[in-house]
Structure formats: C-alpha cells, structure tokens
Design a protein around this nucleic acid. Sequence first.
RNA 1: GGCCCCAUCGUCUAGAGGCCUAGGACACCACCCUCUCAAGGUGGAGACACGGGUUCGAAUCCCGUUGGGGCUGCCA
Length: 437
Amino acid sequence: MSDVRVRFAPSPTGFLHVGGARTALFNWLFARHAGGTFILRIEDTDIERTREEWVTGIQSTLRWLGLDWDEGPFRQSERAHLYAEAADKLVASGHAYREGGAVRFRPPAEGATTFTDVIRGDITVDNSTLEEFVIVRSTGHPTFYLANAVDDVDMGITHVIRGEDLLPSTARVLLVREALGTTEQPVFAHLPLLVGQDRQKLSKRHGDVALEDYRDKGYLAEALRNYLALLGWAPRDGREIVPIDDVVAEFRLEDVTKAAAFFDHQKLDHINGEYIRALPVATFVRESLPWLETDPPWPPENFDADVFDRMAPLVQERVKTLAEVPAMVDFLFLDEPVIDEKAWNKAMKPPAADVLDDAVAAYETTEWTSEALHGVTLAVAVGHGLKLAKAQAPIRVAVTGRTVGPPLFESLAVLGRQRVLDRLQAARARLAEQAAE
RNA sequence: GGCCCCAUCGUCUAGAGGCCUAGGACACCACCCUCUCAAGGUGGAGACACGGGUUCGAAUCCCGUUGGGGCUGCCA
C-alpha cells in the first residue's frame, strides 16, 4: 500500500447527490489507482441538520456504486475533544478569540497563502482579502474550517479531492492548519462542478439528483459509475464504455478537465442501455424481477417467470432502463391488452378487418411457432398485396395494444394460440361495431 | 461589490505550437438492414467566445475584453 490517503467527507444533511457521488468516485479511483487508502469521514458538525437516515443512506448508496472504503466511517460528532483542544490552542496563541461563546479565527492581515492544485495549477490568495470566520459555534460545535483542518492533519490526508465549490475555503483551512503548527500541505484537486441545464451548480432544486433515485429508476450501478467517470475525465483511447478496472488503471488527476460539466440524462440512458444489453440474459432476468413483481400493471398472480424468460432476450436489447421492462411485456400478463387508442386508429384502417379475419383463419390451424406464424402471416399479407410490415400492424395492436414492442411472432408464440385468437376476434368485433356506427 | 475559478460542435470530450480541412461519443437528420420498435451499418449538419500579442507557424503560450460559474453563513 502506498502513502496516498484520501477521504470522501460528505455532510449528512441530505441524500448523496450525483455531484457528491462523482467526488466520491474520483477519490476512490485515485486511491485504488495509487494503491492508497480511501477514507470515509462523515462531517456531521451541524447537528441541527444531520439526520441518521442520511448517514446510513450515504453509506448504502456508496456501497451500491461499489465504492468501498478502507477506513471509517469516522464521524466528527465523535471527535469533539480534538476540535475543542485545537480551538483552545488557537485562542491561547492569539490566532482566534472568543466572542459570545463562539470562536472566531483571525486571518493574518498580511502575506499570502499559496497551494498546489493538480488540476488548476498553483493558486495564491492574499490573506488581506480574507475576513474573520467562525471556527466554533456558540453551541460549542466546530465548523467545517476547524474540523476539516484538524481531521485532514490527524488522518494524514495526502490529497484533497473535492468539488470546486470548496476552492475558496482552501486558503482559510490552510491558515487554520498553519496556526495549529502544520506547515505541510496536502495536494489539492478541485473537480469541475456538475451543473444543470441552467449551468448552475447541481442542487436539490434541479430534481433527479439523488443517486438512490437512479437505482429506483432502473439504472445499473456499473453504468451510472461509468457515466460519472466520464464527467471530467476521459480514457486515452477515447472509449466511453469502460470497465471499472480499466478506469482505475488509467485514472490520473492531472487529466481531469477544468470546466463544469452538464449531467446529461440522455447520454446516461445510452450508456445504461449498453450495459443492459451486455448483461448475461440470466442476470438481466434477475435484475428485472423486482420491476415485474413490485406494483406490476397486471394482476400479480398472472405473472409467469417462465413466460418472461422466453421473452427476456428480446426485451433486453430494447430497453435503456429496467423500469421500461414491464411495459414491454405487459400484454403477456394482462387479462386483456390495454389498447392505445392512437395506435388503434393508426393501425385499424382498411384492409385491417380483412387481415384480422385471414389471420384468425390461418392461426387456427398453423403450427404454433414463431417461424410458422411468420410464414402464414406473410401469406396473409401477400394475399392483400401488402408488405408484412403493414399487415402485422393491426395484429400487433389487437394482441398487444401497441404499434411497437418485441418481435411480433415470438410474442404470439409465447402468448399462446387461444389467447391470440381471442384478442384478434375481440378486435375484429370492435371493428365491426365501428363500421356499423 | 470583493476574492477565486473557468471558456473546443446543443451536450460530454480528444487536442499538451506544425500530425487539425479540429477527432470521437450522446442527441438530431437521411439512407441501409428489417415483421414494429430497438440494436447495427453508412452518410450529414454541427465548435476552437472576441481582440491584441509571441512565433516561420497558435485551438494549443502571454495579455486584455466579454461571457459563465463558485465563494463571500455560528452550511459544507
């Protein structure tokens, strides 16, 4: 193990959002690449806003993403004595003073603070531009400036990798460290911010920022992790679907870009689709089951795992998220297909009625395989001077309710002769009614 | 306002002075494949913010302008 020690230090005042997850990922990638130590530190100094569900939620989300930590979680709320000691020391040395129970740090009036950022180069801030800041609240709890400074020193953090929004606080924290007697500095890497459509820092008001929601919306952890890695970093060879081991092997902080990045759901969808299609079918089936068994759009007792197994390979290559799976196969488990009226109107134009009649006749006697169904349906189409593409439309709508879906003849084969005939006849009857009106 | 950061197609990026007529991916458009839809294939449209330098030569270096963002909390 190398000397590299990094930490992800979230504040548990909310769920882990995509920006935080990206920061955690980059810390983890750097640590794993360097053979260093990845530490999880919960910065819960703001006890008013801390909630235990967030503390556990952040951890479970990190685990879901596969970001395992080597030390921690450490909680600043359990290290109060360290900060109190440091505050006393700063007051005694005159770097800070008490006021109304709080402790305020006084930056030097002269000089400048310089630090190294591997992404942005050296950055220098005139100390005179810094105003006094609170390091201990009147409640006795430390603020970020104190706790962060104390812990990074105490935990031997060598590289501070975090969002660019923390960049302005760097000089302040460094001054606190110096006042405490630590002149060595960690190497900094301020990651470009993740922004929304409005180019503003991603925050809760943008919506769709809670990482755990992505799991619930049918995204695979591997896909999300892959996409997140591409926000501010790119492999040398230009690949975009990159196995995590390759990312770890190639990741370098110096290659991280500087400009803010927009979190593009469309690209995430594309990458998620790539990952879904790459899954072994059995895995795809297993991952899909929760979506099929929880709150299905059909009577739960109708679900048949064997039926789904047969359709799974055809569904797998057509969805971008697992959440889309139920709608792809609902016609198999619904007592009656839910007819989309727009689809109906589009597909049930002449000679749809005749096509349905011929299909019924053909399907009553044909061998019940997708190949045979394909053959007899083609004959029906030819009989009407239609291309198969045209002729299959009314059949598809009658049986599945939609104009799009998995390949029709496989669908019919799986559904079974009787139910297919029932649905074709029901559609035929409805057409007759419409004609009579 | 002050301090700091940033600036290549709509989006994510490649580009570390000549390899750039600026490459790839997503999205978009067309065509092909095709039982629908996807997937796949081919092609297309689409960017170096602007102005000065430096240099034989700049997307790449420097300065300025403009634009965007972050911070400016007893949040982190």
